[in-house]
């Protein structure tokens, strides 16, 4: 589905992503793990078009998508969430969700005043969808709350909800579980599995919680220092010597990765 070939992203002399190559299979939930500073988020940013790559190529279903702006990638069904949840703080939760699908009829000045019926119809559909999403995520009681007032975990759910407003093909989740309590994390996990099974979303998940990775992801890709270190099932990754070294340094090889992460 997504193939990344020899991707480099340098910030001055710092090589955040340093020749990463990987491929993501359609219909999979791929985990992306690695110690802090491994270049996971930068990799996401480059794939999602937020940052231009220094060199390398990204293709989606064989089509070159390197360096396309985010809104065009969005139209192709490539979505991402942020490590630190973003939201339109002055809008309500429901309005936040209804912002999502791009290219709505009401988006041009002309249509705003001259195609009111069509817009109303569209908005009604969106409203229904937004309410369904909120119910699915169990935050429907917050729909008229200003998004800026939500808790960190609820904002994460809202991020996930945003991807459900359109028929996404591939969703990049950046630490969707960070700062989220166990119960909420299970809700998020359930949602991801359901979206994967029922709607065929492909997910790429950056996560530090190994139980969460274990529950959802196959395969798992481990990155360190801007390179892909290993790929396989979580058990294989945990057994991989390079990975243990990257996480714990040398000399601690008999400990497992999961316990420390």
């Amino acid at each position: 589905m997504i193939v990344v070939e020899d991707l480099h992203k340098h910030f001055g002399g710092f090589h955040a992503v340093d020749g990463a190559s990987l491929s993501i299979a359609e219909g999979s939930i791929t985990g992306l793990i690695g110690p802090n500073g491994a270049g996971k988020t930068t990799l996401f940013n480059v794939i999602a078009g937020v940052l231009p790559p220094t060199s390398g190529r990204v293709t989606m279903k064989g089509e070159d998508i390197t360096g396309l702006p985010p809104h065009e990638l969005f139209d192709k069904g490539l979505l991402r969430t942020f490590q630190i949840a973003h939201e339109f703080s002055s809008m309500t939760v429901r309005e936040n969700l209804m912002m999502v699908p791009g290219g709505q009829t009401g988006e041009t000045l002309w249509n705003t005043w001259f195609h009111r019926a069509r817009i109303r119809e569209e908005e009604a559909t969106l409203l229904k969808r937004a309410d369904e999403v909120l119910e699915f995520l169990t935050i429907d009681h917050l729909k008229d709350e200003k998004a800026g007032n939500l808790s960190g975990g609820q904002k994460k759910l809202l991020e996930l909800g945003r991807t459900m407003m359109v028929d996404a093909k591939i969703v990049f989740l950046d630490e969707v579980g960070a700062g989220v309590n166990r119960t909420l994390l299970n809700t998020i996990g359930d949602a991801i599995i359901r979206l994967n099974k029922e709607r065929g979303y492909t997910f790429v998940v950056i996560e530090h919680d190994m139980d969460f990775i274990d529950r959802l992801c196959d395969p798992v890709i481990c990155m360190a220092e801007g390179k892909v270190l290993a790929e396989g099932t979580l058990a294989e990754i945990k057994a991989n010597e390079h990975v243990i070294e990257a996480y714990l340094g040398t000399g601690l090889k008999n400990k497992t990765v999961g316990a420390s992460a």
């Binding site: 937020v50 809104h71 969005f74 973003h86 791009g102």
Partner: peptide, 11 residues
């Protein structure tokens, strides 16, 4: 409000 998010919401 949030340019990054707006871009990633397809605006």
């Amino acid at each position: 409000d949030n340019e990054d998010l707006a871009l990633l919401s397809g605006i």
